[in-house]
Design a protein around this nucleic acid. Structure first.
Lengths: 208, 208
DNA sequence: AGAAAAAATTTACACTGGAAATATGAAAGG
DNA sequence: CCTTTCATATTTCCAGTGTAAATTTTTTCT
């Protein structure tokens, strides 16, 4: 009986509005200065209104981070689609991963460096898994044949290695601690240091 | 004229005492709940006393993080000394890096994920560089001969790759987002996924 | 219409970091 | 020895934070 297109009561859709406002404010003021009261004020409600939709500030942050993971996954998928398994796909996925971090540094920090994973909601866990699954599918294209340097690596190790490299890279980059070229400029392309995985045309049939 | 062993005035050595108390409280209550007032209270002074030694809370956090980087470097050096350049040294350094992160997760987050690098003090910058230099010296042992997979990699790229892998690994580990084996257990040894660098006895002479 | 439930506000409280004025105590100069 | 000086620490105050409880407003259901 709910008419979705009609404003239902006081605000209408406060819950998603808070998430949206939080996403905006997050990049504007930074993670440490993001406050529940400021988010509520931007939406135009009192600072206790969110309590009806989120248990606490942490709950709201979980929802914001979850939306972040969905966009993170989308950013990688966007680049990946249309590429063939192998180097092009790897380039597209890693580029998407790093691009997302550079364009949403505070959101990226909320997702990965805020300790939110310790008490994450089911929604957040699922969104995080969705993001990782994109990387997994890319790694699947590298799984067979195996990386030349470690012929004995299992596929889950290849995935982990890929994730570790691209994540460490993005983390250090947005934190301002490197990576930099010897000339001091930020190194923006992770592929410049990515170890060569071995590709050939048989990669397709290995990707189930 | 200063007699170091005698209490000099009100407190004595408030500055290092605050850093020490901060290091302790940090791991006890976590980065987000660490407060200036709690640190001051632990030392037994008023919450405005730190103002005489640190410009603000951020300044105190910088001093804590700097001490963290020194211990971080020490943790790696401790394992590295006595090893010969190559795989053993790599194992020791990476193990130290990850061990430090596991034993001081909140401190590690303060050092690398708190956005402190944006307005870091000279002390913090120097301590961070000291820590990185240990990794550099280890990478030097891998520099010649070059990693098998990317024969064209420059030495700074090898350093960066090594740093990226071990840092991404430690970050994901303490954040609880992986890395995990397929059975769900945390993967504690980064070498299980580390790409093989090529070593031989000539590595020594290449390390100047 | 009236009852029930949901949503949002008001008020209050215990925290936080920082600014300003004040007090304390140690060192230095006569 | 006494006083001055100055770094150190305290007291007081303020604006801001998240959360809980009681209350008001609006929607929904019978």
């Amino acid at each position: 009986m709910l008419k979705e297109n009609r404003k239902k009561y006081h605000h209408g859709d406060l819950k998603p509005a808070l998430v949206q406002a939080g996403l905006e404010l997050l990049e504007e003021v930074g993670l440490e200065d993001l406050s529940l009261r400021a988010i509520a004020a931007r939406v135009g409600v009192s600072h206790t209104a969110p309590k009806n939709h989120f248990e606490s500030l942490k709950g709201l942050l979980c929802a914001i981070a979850a939306e972040g993971f969905r966009r993170h996954a989308e950013e990688m998928r966007k680049g990946v689609e249309g590429t063939s398994p192998g180097k092009d796909r790897l380039r597209a996925a890693t580029a998407g991963y790093v691009r997302f971090a550079r364009e949403n540094p505070e959101l990226f920090r909320l997702m990965f460096s805020s300790g939110l994973a310790r008490d994450e909601t089911p929604e957040l866990a699922e969104a995080g898994a969705e993001s990782y699954s994109v990387l997994q599918s890319v790694a699947a294209g590298l799984d067979w044949p195996r990386p030349a340097l470690r012929p004995e690596l299992h596929s889950w190790q290849t995935e982990l290695l890929l994730w570790t490299i691209v994540h460490g890279y993005a983390s250090l980059l947005i934190e301002g601690r490197g990576p930099r070229t010897p000339h001091g400029e930020p190194l923006l392309d992770v592929l410049e240091i990515m170890p060569d995985f071995e590709f050939d045309s048989n990669a397709d049939r290995a990707t189930q």
